[in-house]
């Protein structure tokens, strides 16, 4: 049960990353590799500031803006200097690797004995107290942490949804959907795209900073495979929800992240080799990406057959 709670908590933390990937990948059809660097960047900033004695909340906020800055650079490389989208992400991701090492000063910063936003909420729980959920005994502090993360992610999702329904937000969605149209209606699509890539990476860095504080360390390698992880969450969410409404898609991305984390936890319990995790995730995303196309082709073939019979 404790593993379950832990998985849901990590799923909800990574849901912020999924929301970031949702913005770039679903709204702008832009597979942004900056993600791999900005997850770690967020973790690195938060960890470095916390061990220097800054308040964890402030450190987390600065991590968010750090991510925004990374995204800003990618956005400018892509929209202003017209570099290929993947290449822009790769360049910034690579540069961030060095930046992260500088920020951290070493490749790993342990946070277990430091105050973090997580430990802050832990304190509200009675130490050692356990709660009975359906016959399972769960440490009260785990539930408090889960509750905090749940609230935080729900709030972020709600704000994001509200934003994408404002005049500005709707125009940004249109910029991803049909740039020519919204430019003809007076929107600066380049600026919109840069803003969205920055916001996306801010959320991703925020996710990284919370993950570091939850797991008790920041590591320079922790971003590896995170793009595919985010894509998997978004894709699962889309399949679950099956609509184009932004609100539901945002909800779907959050649910997708939690579900995916749970699936992974279960697979690991069943004895899946953790080394295979990224391979399996990649294969999963590949299948999920080509499946819709395959299904429509199959369906069309069926329809065609019916047509031929009808003519006989």
């Amino acid at each position: 049960m404790s593993i379950l709670i832990g998985s849901i908590t990590v799923g909800l933390i990574l849901a912020l990353l999924a929301l970031g990937v949702f913005i770039t990948f679903k709204i702008f059809h832009f597979p942004d590799l900056t993600t791999e660097g900005s997850v770690t960047f967020g973790a690195a900033i938060a960890a470095a500031l916390i061990i220097k004695g800054y308040s964890p909340a402030l450190a987390t906020l600065i991590a968010f803006f750090g991510g925004c800055l990374a995204g800003l650079v990618t956005g400018i490389l892509h929209a202003v200097f017209k570099l290929n989208g993947l290449l822009s992400g790769i360049l910034v991701m690579t540069a961030l690797y060095s930046v992260n090492l500088h920020v951290m000063g070493k490749s790993n910063i342990p946070l277990l004995s430091e105050p973090t936003v997580i430990s802050h909420f832990e304190r509200y729980a009675a130490a050692g107290e356990e709660v009975n959920i359906l016959g399972w005994l769960v440490p009260q502090k785990d539930l408090f942490i889960l509750g905090f993360i749940l609230l935080f992610t729900a709030l972020t999702g709600t704000l994001l949804n509200a934003f994408f329904k404002t005049n500005l937000g709707v125009a940004m969605r249109a910029a991803g959907n049909n740039a020519q149209m919204i430019r003809a209606l007076g929107a600066n699509t380049k600026a919109y795209m840069i803003f969205c890539i920055a916001l996306s990476n801010g959320l991703i860095a925020l996710s990284g900073s919370l993950l570091a504080q939850f797991q008790g360390f920041a590591d320079v390698q922790m971003g590896i495979g995170m793009v595919v992880w985010g894509l998997a969450s978004v894709i699962i969410g889309e399949a679950l929800i099956n609509t184009k409404s932004v609100g539901f898609l945002i909800f779907g991305a959050v649910m997708g992240s939690v579900l995916f984390r749970l699936l992974v936890a279960i697979a690991l319990q069943w004895g899946m080799n953790p080394n295979d995790l990224k391979l399996i995730t990649a294969v999963f995303v590949f299948i999920a990406l080509i499946l819709p196309g395959l299904l429509t082709r199959l369906e069309n073939r069926k329809k065609l057959k019916k047509l031929e019979y009808a003519e006989d």
């Binding site: 005049n167 709707v170 969605r173 049909n178």
Partner: peptide, 24 residues
């Protein structure tokens, strides 16, 4: 914009060339 509703498309056009802010 194909993925957006008729109403959303019109809302976009109703602010052609104007500032787009944070109102609904």
């Amino acid at each position: 914009a194909p993925d957006m509703s008729i109403a959303e498309n019109i809302a976009l056009a109703a602010r052609r060339g104007m500032k787009r802010g944070l109102s609904s």
